[in-house]
Nucleic acid binder design. Structure first.
Lengths: 132, 132, 132, 132
DNA sequence: GTGGTCTAGACCACA
DNA sequence: GTGGTCTAGACCACG
């Protein structure tokens, strides 16, 4: 699972983590019983304080998404309501709309925008491959 | 223009306002030169402090989206980007990356993602046309 | 860096700070990457509210002069202008016009004015060199 | 006398007027006994509220710079301490320094800056001529 | 009535 | 300790 943090979004880092992990859990990117990355390495990788990652995991636990077994790690619980395709699209639509609006404000035309989207997709896919 | 605040989202209220107003501006829901709701009444309506709305408007002004004339009000500006191409790309890349990451976590594949992007672009362009 | 506020000038305190810090940054009194005084101590020293200093720093950040990392502090950024040539000229024209108007009211003629401009340019360039 | 207002400087408009008129008075741009522009036309020309001009004149009167004779107009009083050359230079230096700093921040080099200064001087001199 | 500045003080996110 | 957000309320400049 590749996690990405934006320190300037105004959204608390721990909530960014919570959302991304919940999305992954609800969409099958994470499977029931699978282990989440452990706190210390993840905190280092994201250049974030360990407390921040711990807080995100605590939040996920209190939401019933994961289960923390002290000394062993954090694992995805069963019973997570799966996102329907339309629920996924709704979340994604919101993200895409923000980019579309930004493009309009910056007077970037459709073709340039689509080119940039493809370029970012390629760049991201490369990153995912490397991480494996 | 409909503004709606989610106090639980973790996203700062003033940034929620900024995003929604930018969207309204970009999609034609607000016309060039048109006055935005004035600070005090809007603050009351949203049950938010006056300063919070003022901060949102100040942010929009510094982004060049609106012009505020003290004693008169805040008005939507003609849309001309003052950024260099590289600065524009940087801003846009950030927005696109967020959508790409969300797609990854939601297990939406490349083709479905691109289709959704095109669909949103079309939808947005229709809205802009209608508003004219 | 020496900061000094004139409470009677009519100029907002936060803008006085912005101008003085920009000057220090431009003239080498502050180096790239160097930390600015932190908000709370500076506010106490200047006998000004914390929010006022914070507003000055926020303005500097939005102008791209400094970078602020929550929890760590505010740092002087590498100086690369993100504006288009025409946007740059617009800003600069405003500053120059103010000086030209002042010269007119002070009955300083064209040649004396140009001489003073060159003198200040030299003085500034010397300061920048010394700081290196 | 040509007056110039900057609505965005943060400095109150009436104080901008006071300063410019005081400078002109102290430097011989205005002569003892000479009439100042009357309030209404000046307010229209500057696109400013009449109250604002009136406030500037009231301030100047309370400072003893001008004398208001109801029904006749406002006139420059005697006894105004003349600015010495060094006092004039001090004020002007401050204005010029701000422009120099802005040029540095915007990475405009010396020659381009000087060219822009000359261009603005020419533009201003044309305006003064037209106004006569 | 409009927006702008400033103060004072609370709470949060993060190191 | 750092900066960020928000509230509450005062006063100013301006129309």
């Amino acid at each position: 699972m590749l996690l990405q943090i934006d320190f300037k979004s105004g959204k608390p880092v721990y909530l960014q983590l919570v959302d991304q992990i919940r999305y992954a859990a609800a969409s099958g990117g994470l499977r029931t019983g699978e282990a989440l990355p452990s706190i210390r390495p993840l905190a280092e990788e994201l250049r974030v304080n360990r407390n921040t990652v711990a807080k995100a995991y605590a939040e996920l636990e209190s939401q019933g998404v994961i289960e923390t077994i002290p000394g062993k790690g954090c694992f995805l619980r069963e019973n997570n309501s799966q996102f329907t395709r339309s629920a996924r699209d709704k979340i994604l639509t919101k993200e895409i709309d923000e980019a579309v609006v930004a493009a309009h404000h910056l007077q970037v035309d459709r073709d340039a925008f689509l080119a940039l989207v493809k370029e970012r997709l390629d760049s991201f896919e490369r990153k995912v491959k490397e991480a494996k």
